[in-house]
């Protein structure tokens, strides 16, 4: 199979043998070990837990470790790999995730205990309460950046907070132990926040964890509209 990889200085082409149950990450690793030792890419767990191997595979952001080649290779037998979109490239397939996580903190992504102190007793949060269910729906995000790379709004406005940061904010807005609700809602309102979302749901469509950041952003819009209007 033909593999085209975006590298510093243009697209490089490699030929790799097709194997059964081969993942895209297997292909990249084989290229680096056998053909291009200076190829830069990022991975850690290889089993879909860490979220570090995300790349654009034939134009779609994916975890390469959980993507079988047979399911994504084009009819022409070509695999095209690029670094995640909407992020600065450090080298080859490695992007700088700093702007992505910087937006998490700008969106108020840190838990702030009520009254500024963590209570001595464990908080009792009924798992079946509607608020807890909303929080649970978004809590499994591992910060891989697939949604961020799939978001049109980020590509139009570099300041836009993006789906992952606002998904995180929404889980905290629904956390009854949290004490920074008002400030967080202010942080996600405005031109760089939830009100710029077009609800095209690229994030929800592509999230490898099956989360719904678009729904979280809609929840923020609703909460702000009825709460602070």
């Amino acid at each position: 199979m033909k593999v085209r990889i975006q590298r510093d200085g243009g697209m490089a082409e490699y030929a790799v043998a097709a194997r059964a149950s081969q993942t895209v990450l297997d292909v990249v690793t084989e290229i680096q070990r056998e053909q291009a030792p200076d190829l830069a890419y990022r991975f850690a767990c290889r089993v879909g837990m860490c979220g570090s191997c995300a790349m654009e595979v034939n134009g779609v952001a994916r975890w390469t470790c959980r993507t079988h080649v047979s399911r994504v290779v084009g009819a022409d037998g070509v695999l095209e790999l690029r670094p995640l979109a909407n992020l600065p490239v450090i080298r080859d397939l490695v992007t700088d995730m700093a702007p992505f996580f910087e937006k998490w903190s700008r969106a108020g992504g840190q838990f702030v205990p009520k009254d500024g102190v963590v209570p001595a007793e464990f908080a009792v949060v009924p798992p079946a309460s509607p608020q807890r269910r909303e929080a649970d729906a978004g809590i499994e995000c591992i910060g891989c950046g697939v949604c961020y790379a799939s978001c049109d709004i980020v590509s139009w406005n570099a300041d836009y907070l993006g789906p992952a940061a606002m998904n995180r904010a929404w889980t905290l807005v629904n956390d009854e132990r949290d004490g920074a609700r008002a400030g967080r809602l202010r942080a996600v309102a405005g031109d760089a926040g939830c009100h710029s979302c077009h609800s095209t749901q690229g994030c929800t469509e592509r999230c490898p964890k099956g989360l719904d950041p678009s729904g979280a952003i809609a929840g923020l819009k609703r909460t702000i509209f009825w709460g602070l209007a």
């Binding site: 309102a189 405005g190 009100h195 819009k221 702000i224 509209f225 602070l228 209007a229």
Partner: peptide, 9 residues
Amino acid sequence: MRLWAIQRV
């Protein structure tokens, strides 16, 4: 937020 609300209303 205000502009968004104006737009919807």
